[in-house]
Computed example of a mutant assay.
Amino acid sequence: MPKITIDIPADVYQALHRFALQDRLTGEEAALLVLRDWLISNGYLNAEMALDDVTPTEGES
């Protein structure tokens, strides 16, 4: 999976950090979930295709 690095404002970081702690996620997992949800809800990503990306394939589970 490609990696990206971004600078975010402190308030966004704090909100993302709270979300990650609440759901027991890493910061990377939380950021991916938030971004994926936004892309789906705004029509940039097909929800079914997004599910395929995170569903383990044979031999990965």
Score class of each variant (00 low, 15 high):
Tyr44Val: 04
Gln14Met: 13
Ile6Arg: 02
Gly43Ser: 00
Thr57Asp: 09
Asn46Lys: 01
Asp53Trp: 11
Ala31Arg: 07
Asp23Val: 02
Glu28Gly: 08
Pro2Ile: 13
Ile8Ala: 00
Ile4Gly: 10
Glu48Gln: 11
Ile8Tyr: 02
Thr5His: 01
Thr57Leu: 10
Asn46Val: 03
Thr5Cys: 00
Ser61Cys: 08
Asp53Ile: 10
Asp53Cys: 12
Arg36Asn: 07
Gly43Tyr: 00
Ile40Ser: 04
Ala15His: 13
Ala31Gln: 06
Tyr44Gly: 01
Arg18Met: 11
Trp38Leu: 12
Leu21Lys: 11
Lys3Ala: 03
Glu28Ala: 10
Leu16Gly: 10
Leu35Gly: 03
Asp11Gln: 08
Leu45Ser: 00
Leu39Val: 04
His17Gln: 13
Glu48Asn: 12
Asp7Lys: 07
Leu51Lys: 12
Leu25Asn: 04
Ile6His: 02
Ala31Ile: 08
Gln14Ser: 12
Leu21Cys: 12
Asn46Phe: 02
Arg24Cys: 14
Ile6Ser: 01
Met49Leu: 12
Tyr44Asn: 01
Asp23Ala: 05
Ile40Gly: 05
Leu35Ile: 01
Gln14Ile: 13
Glu29Pro: 05
Arg36Lys: 07
Leu25Tyr: 00
Arg24Ala: 10
Asp23His: 07
Thr57Gln: 14
Asp11Asn: 08
Glu58Gln: 12
Val34Asn: 02
Thr5Ile: 06
Thr57Met: 09
Ala47Met: 08
Met49Phe: 10
Ala31Ser: 04
Ala20Arg: 13
Ile6Pro: 04
Ile4Asp: 06
Val34Gln: 05
Gly59Trp: 11
Gly43Pro: 00
Gln14Asp: 15
Glu28Val: 08
Asn46Ala: 03
Glu28Ile: 06
Phe19Tyr: 06
Thr55Glu: 13
Gln22Met: 13
Pro9Cys: 06
His17Ile: 06
Pro9Asp: 04
Ile8His: 02
Asp37His: 12
Pro2Lys: 15
Thr57Ile: 10
Asp7Gln: 00
Ser41Trp: 09
Asp52Glu: 15
Arg36Pro: 02
Asp52His: 15
Ala10Asp: 09
Trp38Gln: 11
